[in-house]
Nucleic acid binder design. Structure first.
Lengths: 148, 148
DNA sequence: TATAATGGTTACAAATATATAACTATTGTT
DNA sequence: AACAATAGTTATATATTTGTAACCATTATA
């Protein structure tokens, strides 16, 4: 019973994934020099605040050496900064800069412009439904998928 | 007004994208030899039936040479086959094999097993909400994002 | 028939992602 | 003090993705 519901959910998520990939990751690269990985890191920082290198890796299930590469590039571009941890000198915390935050928002706005050209095809009721459905999905997925 | 709603939707989609990436694309690689790109192609074929090489590229916004590489690999593994088009001999149509369809479903089932370990944290009401929200999102996104 | 356009492949280069091991510095434990 | 464990980096190799140009076969058009 719930088994079927879980399979249905998995099926829906599998269908949504390539659509988001196509309408988010792809247009991204024509708009900025930020890579998808860099965008994921900035999204985590925006959403959860300052994070250590290891925390970022856990958030995104990425190996630490990859995080180092991504963060190095984001630092070169002035989007994030390193902070030494006062309690544990092994730890390096990363946070968004003002420029990083502003550019991140700009990119999202730019993406919503692209999306808007598609969304105008929806009537008010569908727009409302998509707004509510995406909001609900975001909340539930964050609650179960974004830990550890 | 609707401007704000569009931005909200974009924000939600941007938040959902990395969660799906983490819980779908990543676990995929430990379970199969199929690459994310190959999975996207098989998903398109499952959803839309036989497609030409160019059609697949349009579906996924991928350049044709990349499709050739992905399809070559899927053929090596016996997941898809090429068909000559009887009307236009330039066109090569691709379809899933029985093995491709079965393995694709198996992988999705395997992914839903992984997901299920997370979804048990939800109560019946949340499960129902996620089921409905993902269903609605899938329908609307497909209707506006999967053309051309 | 000559030409342009289309569908697909091949070849190549560059960027990005993945994975592993080795290494330094620091901390925690005995 | 000796040791193991943790956080992060460096180095290296490989896989995947992205992008471009050139090419062949076929079809459409002038």
């Amino acid at each position: 019973m719930t088994k079927l519901k879980v399979d249905l959910i998995a099926d829906n998520l599998m269908a949504i994934h390539p659509l988001l990939y196509k309408s988010i990751s792809k247009p991204l690269r024509s708009k900025t020099s930020i890579t998808p990985g860099g965008m994921f890191v900035m999204d985590s920082l925006k959403r959860r605040g300052m994070l250590s290198m290891s925390d970022i890796g856990k958030c995104l299930s990425m190996p630490k050496p990859h995080i180092t590469v991504i963060v190095d590039k984001l630092i070169d571009e002035g989007y994030v900064v390193r902070h030494n941890d006062s309690n544990d000198r092994r730890i390096i915390n990363i946070s968004l800069t003002d420029k990083g935050l502003i550019d991140f928002e700009d990119i999202k706005k730019s993406l919503s412009e692209t999306l808007k050209s598609k969304l105008v095809l929806l009537n008010d009721q569908e727009l409302e439904q998509l707004s509510e459905a995406s909001q609900k999905m975001k909340e539930i997925l964050i609650s179960i998928l974004s830990r550890e």
